[in-house]
Amino acid sequence: MSDAASDAANKGGELTVRVWRGAEVGAFATYLVPARANQTVLDVVTEIQRYHAPDLAYRFACRVGVCGSCAMTVNGVPRWTCRTHVSRVAKAGALTVEPLRNLPRIRDLACDMAPFFDKWKAAGGRFEGGATRADLPAAVDPASPKRRAADAGIECINCAVCHAACDVVAWDAEYLGPAALLRAWTLVNDERHLARRATLDRAMGPGGCASCHTQGSCMAHCPVGLSPTEGIAGLKRMSLAAMFLGDR
C-alpha cells in the first residue's frame, strides 16, 4: 500500500504531536502528521524531522528493539519508541514526546547518557575475568541457581527506561539506579567474575541496593520485561547474608 493509500485507509486522520524543543530550557512545539495504519512513535518523530523540523535532534539506530538508543518519554511514560505503536499510546489522536527523565537534556529529544553509564561503572559493573586465550571457555551449568539468577539481567539493552521511571533516581543523586544494580546482580552471579566481592560491596554501599524503595516502576516499564526490582531484592538478600553469615 502506498503512503497515500494508507492515509486514505485512515480516513485522512491526523495526529497532533507535541515535541520538546530546546534543552533544559525549552518549550513544546506542535506538529500535525498523518495518522497511518501501522506507525510507531519513532516513525512519527522521523516524519516530523523529515517534513517539518529538519533540525530536530533525536536518537535511534536499530529500529527493532535491540540497541536501546531510542527511548523517550511518550505521554508521560518512558518507552522504547521504535517498538511502541502509536495506536497503543495516543490519547484522542494526541502524543506528547519528551526526552527521558532523570538525565541531562542535550537538545530536543536527545539526552546525555553519560551519567547513566557512569553509574554502571560505579556499581562495579565491569566484568573481570581471569582466563586467557589459552583456556577453554568456562563450563557454566545453565541449570545452576546462579546462572538462572544471572538470567534476570543479561537481556538488558541499556535503554535507561528504568532509570527514567525510577523516582528514587530523581530524588537521590547518589542512587545508582535500577539498570546499574541489575548489572551488579548479574555479575555477582557470574561464576567467572573475579571481583564478585568488590561488586557486592559497591552494590551494598552508599546509593546502592538499600536505597531502593521497591516502587517497581523499573519493572513496570522495562520494555524487555526485565525486573531490576527482583535483582535489587537479590542484592539485598545477598548483602544481608554477607553481613550475618560472612562471605568470602
Partner: peptide, 18 residues
Amino acid sequence: MRPHRNHRAYWAFLGHRL
C-alpha cells in the same frame, strides 16, 4: 498521579509509606 507512577507496585509503595 503522573502516568509513569500509575501501577500497582507504586500504589502499594504509597499505601505503605503514607
